[in-house]
Amino acid sequence: MNKIEVKNVDFFYGNFQALKNISLDIEANKVVAFIGPSGCGKSTFIRIFNRMNDLIPETRLKGSVKIDGVDIYQKGIDVDELRKNVGMVFQRPNPFPKSIFDNVAYGLRVNGLKDKHFICQKVEESLKGAALWEEVKDKLKESAFALSGGQQQRLCIARALAISPSILLMDEPASALDPISTAKIEELIWELKKTYTIVIVTHNMQQAARVSDKTAYFYLGEMIEYDDTKIIFTNPKKESTQNYITGRFG
């Protein structure tokens, strides 16, 4: 069974249709990259998987989105529970103005966990998972704002890992970072893919080519092509895709 199954999804901001009849399946423990020019709907689409678009007033979704076989838009779905299963890392690092420790522990605490020992263990595990532990283990009590941009982004990844999701959504996680931090994040994605199903939006074609197993190309709210990353980048079937990846527009 596929981890995620999207069928005939339309999405509207008020009267504006941002996504048009999109269907795709994502297998477990794969990395899928969404590429496409700015404004084509990548962020809108990735935010559908954890129902983040619910926060925006007057939005509407048609079609079905299933995770582990369950329609996440059906009545009676506990959205908070859904979001515990589907972690998200945003474009700009957005740590809370709290200590490093409290940032990672936040997700555990809002889930009602109180056991100090368990929380400590989980924080360490998550920071290790995000390849940040060695850099911060001596200053867990310090403010997260004292970290560099790249470290903050890895902290946000650690924060997402702490609640043990099975899917990780990343919306241009490296676009605000320097090349070295970017390389670290990409390495990390390779590691994480063993445990998580990862959906990543990226502006950077090489990045998509390097980290993903499959790539979906979006244009003006439509999914033009979805295939193995190798095929998309070497032998795309659509001309529009070809033009985009060769940098003729976008």
Partner: peptide
């Protein structure tokens, strides 16, 4: 968004 995405109500 960060808080909600972590399952915070």
């Amino acid at each position: 968004e960060a808080s909600l995405a972590l399952g915070g109500s």
